[in-house]
Every structure is written in structure tokens, then in C-alpha cells.
Computed example of a mutant assay.
Amino acid sequence: MGHEDPVEVVDAAGFLAAGDELARLYAAVFGGPPWNEPPERAEAFRATLPGEAARPGFRAAFSRDGGGALAGFAYGFTTAEPFPSGRSYDEVRVALGAGTGELSGTFEVMELAVHPAARGGGHGRRLLAAVVGDRPAWLLTAEHAEGTVAFYDRLGWRRLGSANGILVYTAP
């Protein structure tokens, strides 16, 4: 087995201190296929970080390449009880109906991003393991993101449901 770049679990302050670096990586990941988000979406993402880091149960991790550049990040927090509305929560509610209650109080993986040049090196797997640990967790992704869907399937995440182009997964 080859060398694996380490994953660093960071607190909210460390996460926020890397905001510009996170926004650049976000743009590199989500600006291209299959997401094709416009450049201003990375700045909007950057603006959400303080609110995200203040959520109960916040946990984040970074992965860096051999040169110290940010190769990936993941973060999440505890899903509120009762199950929230707004954001993508309404889509999850459509996908799962009454099943959303099972997600309340569990860890929600809000974002997992690995630079395109670093994919295939285990960054995503290690980042996901670092933020989730052994606790119950869930996430969602876009059905059209075939590589991402295949990644979660390979890791054994279980598909709970889908609606309006999103796919909801729970940790194995």
C-alpha cells in the first residue's frame, strides 16, 4: 500500500481560518462537470461557513497533498430535531416522507469535496471516515453525479430514497 496523505480534524476556528482556501477548492470541485456551478457560487459557499461552523455537533476535516495544499475537505453537523425545513431538507422530506424523523439527531455530512487532481487517492474515503466516525450519519448528492454516486455505493452507504434529482444516503 502506498503513502496516504494524512487527514486533519479541525475545530470551527481552524475551519473558518481556511475559508479562502476552502472557497478556492470548492470552485475547483463544483465549477466543473458534473456540477458546473458558476464562479459566484464559491463566494456564496464561503459566506455560509460561519453559520455552518456554529451548528451543534460541527465537525470538519482537511486532507492535504504532499506539498501542503488543500486536497479535500469534509464537514457536517448534527441534524436538528424536529427535522428542519428549507435548504435541501424539503427535498429530503419529499424523498423519505415520514422517514426523515430517523435522520434527526444524527450526523449530517454537509459537504465532501476532493480536488479533481487528487481523486482516486483515498482522500474522500479518509475525509468521510474522519468526520463521521462510527456514529449514525446521512448525506445527499445529485443523482446525475455518477462518479459521486458510485463512490458512496462502493463505500457501502445505503440509498434511502430519491426525489427531484437528489439521492439520500445513510452510513453503512
Rank of each mutant, 00 (worst) to 15 (best):
35 W>F: 14
143 E>R: 15
137 A>E: 02
80 A>D: 01
75 Y>N: 13
86 G>R: 00
57 G>T: 00
66 G>T: 14
76 G>F: 05
120 G>H: 09
99 G>V: 02
72 G>F: 12
33 P>Q: 09
68 G>N: 07
52 E>M: 11
92 V>T: 11
89 Y>T: 01
156 G>D: 08
58 F>H: 01
119 R>T: 12
115 H>A: 15
143 E>K: 12
67 G>M: 12
144 H>E: 11
59 R>C: 02
42 A>F: 07
111 E>H: 10
150 A>C: 03
63 S>W: 07
112 L>Y: 06
91 E>H: 14
88 S>A: 15
138 W>D: 00
121 G>Y: 08
146 E>I: 10
56 P>H: 03
113 A>G: 14
86 G>K: 00
65 D>C: 08
87 R>A: 15
100 T>K: 03
95 A>N: 03
98 A>C: 04
71 A>H: 13
82 P>D: 00
96 L>S: 03
60 A>F: 04
74 A>Q: 09
130 A>R: 14
155 L>T: 07
122 G>S: 07
50 P>Q: 09
48 T>E: 10
95 A>F: 02
33 P>V: 11
84 P>Y: 01
48 T>H: 07
57 G>Y: 01
117 A>M: 07
100 T>S: 06
154 R>P: 05
47 A>E: 14
56 P>T: 00
109 V>W: 04
39 P>M: 11
109 V>S: 02
45 F>S: 13
128 L>P: 11
146 E>H: 14
112 L>R: 06
107 F>N: 02
112 L>I: 14
156 G>A: 09
153 D>Y: 05
139 L>K: 12
93 R>L: 01
59 R>H: 02
62 F>W: 11
151 F>E: 11
57 G>K: 02
62 F>R: 11
99 G>I: 01
42 A>V: 10
128 L>H: 14
152 Y>L: 02
66 G>L: 13
132 V>F: 01
149 V>M: 08
60 A>P: 06
107 F>W: 06
135 R>V: 03
88 S>F: 15
33 P>Y: 09
70 L>E: 05
121 G>C: 12
126 R>P: 07
85 S>Y: 04
56 P>W: 00
61 A>M: 09
113 A>I: 10
54 A>H: 01
40 E>P: 05
105 G>P: 07
35 W>L: 05
73 F>L: 12
107 F>Y: 12
125 R>V: 06
34 P>S: 08
43 E>R: 14
40 E>D: 15
133 G>N: 07
98 A>E: 15
85 S>M: 06
68 G>H: 08
117 A>P: 05
98 A>Y: 05
121 G>A: 15
85 S>E: 10
117 A>Y: 06
120 G>A: 04
43 E>A: 15
89 Y>M: 05
47 A>W: 05
40 E>L: 10
155 L>K: 07
99 G>K: 06
37 E>R: 15
69 A>D: 15
153 D>W: 05
80 A>I: 00
93 R>N: 04
56 P>C: 02
143 E>I: 11
